[in-house]
Nucleic acid binder design. Structure first.
Lengths: 153, 153
DNA sequence: TATTGTTGTAACTATTGACATTACATCGAG
DNA sequence: CTCGATGTAATGTCAATAGTTACAACAATA
């Protein structure tokens, strides 16, 4: 039994940013280099095994293809056809956004219904968030990166 | 250094549902009972100390008043004037919704800019979420609970 | 004023989960 | 068959969570 209370905020979706960076690197460097887990790990600055695991999730979602023996990953869709929603759902278990206490007092009218009432409201909020995600494509992010690069020269 | 990768989803905002339940109980039972931390704890089914801590955050945000010696909490605003956004911001540190890796490779064009690019996109999504929250009031939730109660009789 | 029940916090512990790393079987091209 | 790469399991470390105990401060009231 857990109640998830504490002094620090716990954020959700810790893997999505890593997955985004992986996909951006494949899109940007796929032609120039062999995008192995070691190569990708050096951009994200994490252990290659973490890249492989995330890459496995992206592969299961049909976003990338990974060459088993020879190494290297490539996109299975065009950057404009990969959205943040695709990536989010690839790496996040599809659970509720918020964790509502599991065993409130069933004899309390509030406790008895909190999960139903709040859960329904919050799932609407989550749907909106996913809709936002679906409007952002990998191509958009590639363009953002290119624009940021220009300014740095 | 943490990279937040793993097999389970980590959700954010674990305290908000508890805070919501506390406020609902105060609103609903404030007239009938003395809403002490022990009373509230029996609805949420957590340790009274957890209630007191959350109650302290709600008090700091000006949402409730807690009687120090005598015990019991009461709302400082009308239920229609308390939104989920108020509650969210009372109990959550105002950090980014997503945790983007802290030290990507600065020599990689993607790594160098991922935080800027993705962070800006995601903060927009968070703003939308907060806007959603601001449309949901404690009164709405009280009505939802009352409606759920009816069906149970 | 002493009692009583409550709040506000500060410890402290147990436990969970995240992340890094190692290890190794498997794979595919040369 | 060799070599470099992937896939995945196992393990260790560490931070954060949640629960609990403890106790001082507080306000009503007997």
């Amino acid at each position: 039994m857990r109640f998830f209370y504490g002094d620090d905020t716990v954020q959700f979706s810790f893997r999505m940013p890593v997955a985004v960076q992986i996909l951006l690197c494949i899109a940007k460097f796929g032609g120039m280099f062999k995008t192995t887990s070691t190569f990708l790990a050096s951009s994200v600055n994490v252990h290659p095994v973490i890249i492989r695991k995330t890459l496995g999730q992206l592969r299961n979602a049909g976003l990338v293809e990974v060459a088993a023996g020879v190494g290297g990953a490539k996109l299975m869709k065009k950057p404009q056809d990969i959205t943040l929603q695709d990536i989010f759902q690839a790496v996040e278990d599809d659970e509720d956004l918020f964790h509502i206490q599991d065993n409130p007092n069933p004899r309390c009218p509030v406790g008895r219904n909190i999960k139903l009432v709040l859960g329904s409201r919050l799932s609407t909020v989550k749907e909106h968030m996913l809709a936002d995600f679906s409007q952002i494509t990998l191509e958009d992010l590639l363009a953002d990166v290119a624009k940021a690069e220009e300014k740095q020269q």
